[in-house]
Computed example of a mutant assay.
Amino acid sequence: MQAFLVSTGVVALAEVGDKTQLLAFLLAAKFRRPVPIVLGILAATLLNHAAAGALGAWITSVLGPRTLRWGLGLSFLAMAAWTLVPDRLDESDTQLARHGVFVTTFLTFFLAEMGDKTQVATIALAAQYQAMGAVVAGTTLGMMLANVPAVYLGDRIAHRLPVRAIHAVAALVFAVLGVATLLGAGERLGF
């Protein structure tokens, strides 16, 4: 349960102001069809985070406990710093295909998440907790908690969110996870 809750919270916080949330605003404004947009986000996130979770699980099988502990600890600290860097949409992220709302959303979200901080966080969390299903479910829920309101409420809430404060809290959580991992908090889990 801890893996699910931490994964949900960290990703929901980290996703506020992220380029995929900005993409959700853009798609909602362009298409004004929230249900296929939300379903496209869900499908893309599930596929992307399942692959990331599988990579995290595989990493735990090939790295020794000490290497894994240091790698995870440093990864969480790097995620803390990365979370403080504001995202912007690139022009390539806004090129919308003409394949329908669901397919357009699915493709743009899947590609935008490749190498994004939430995907990297999913890899690290799956390796940390060795509970791929709980982590993927949690990170997916976190993405949905951040992006569904963006689809439905759009510009009405975008300028009201304290993005810097939310990113600071997410960075703090990543930093705590990193320090705790480096200090051996995960030793009972075998790393």
Rank of each mutant, 00 (worst) to 15 (best):
residue 78 A to S: 11
residue 182 L to N: 11
residue 115 G to Y: 11
residue 161 L to K: 13
residue 103 V to L: 15
residue 89 L to H: 09
residue 145 L to M: 13
residue 84 L to W: 00
residue 88 R to K: 13
residue 79 M to S: 08
residue 77 L to Y: 06
residue 120 V to R: 02
residue 11 V to T: 04
residue 131 A to G: 02
residue 148 V to T: 12
residue 90 D to P: 04
residue 14 A to N: 02
residue 10 V to P: 01
residue 120 V to Y: 09
residue 68 L to M: 15
residue 62 V to N: 12
residue 122 T to M: 06
residue 146 A to Y: 07
residue 135 V to M: 01
residue 25 F to I: 06
residue 118 T to G: 09
residue 64 G to C: 15
residue 141 L to K: 02
residue 113 E to Q: 13
residue 141 L to R: 09
residue 181 T to P: 12
residue 73 G to I: 12
residue 73 G to N: 09
residue 135 V to F: 00
residue 66 R to S: 15
residue 78 A to K: 00
residue 133 G to M: 03
residue 56 G to H: 07
residue 188 R to V: 07
residue 130 Q to F: 01
residue 108 T to L: 15
residue 159 H to G: 03
residue 26 L to M: 06
residue 147 N to G: 13
residue 78 A to N: 03
residue 179 V to G: 08
residue 57 A to V: 10
residue 23 L to T: 04
residue 37 I to S: 02
residue 111 L to V: 14
residue 40 G to K: 08
residue 152 Y to K: 02
residue 52 A to Y: 12
residue 99 H to C: 13
residue 101 V to E: 11
residue 148 V to S: 03
residue 79 M to G: 05
residue 21 Q to G: 05
residue 187 E to A: 15
residue 74 L to W: 02
residue 106 F to C: 13
residue 34 P to L: 03
residue 51 A to V: 15
residue 78 A to M: 04
residue 74 L to E: 09
residue 15 E to H: 08
residue 67 T to G: 14
residue 128 Q to D: 01
residue 118 T to A: 14
residue 146 A to E: 08
residue 67 T to W: 13
residue 112 A to F: 01
residue 89 L to D: 05
residue 157 I to L: 07
residue 64 G to L: 15
residue 104 T to R: 07
residue 74 L to V: 15
residue 70 W to D: 13
residue 23 L to R: 12
residue 52 A to Q: 08
residue 65 P to W: 15
residue 112 A to G: 06
residue 100 G to L: 14
residue 151 V to K: 01
residue 176 V to F: 08
residue 25 F to L: 14
residue 80 A to I: 06
residue 21 Q to C: 04
residue 79 M to Q: 06
residue 167 H to R: 09
residue 103 V to G: 08
residue 189 L to P: 02
residue 20 T to E: 11
residue 12 A to F: 10
residue 43 A to N: 03
residue 35 V to C: 02
residue 67 T to M: 14
residue 17 G to C: 00
residue 117 K to Y: 06
residue 12 A to H: 08
residue 97 A to D: 14
residue 11 V to M: 01
residue 17 G to Q: 01
residue 180 A to Y: 13
residue 6 V to N: 02
residue 44 A to T: 02
residue 86 P to T: 10
residue 41 I to E: 10
residue 28 A to K: 04
residue 95 Q to S: 11
residue 51 A to K: 03
residue 35 V to A: 07
residue 82 W to F: 11
residue 173 V to C: 09
residue 188 R to D: 08
residue 85 V to F: 11
residue 125 L to A: 01
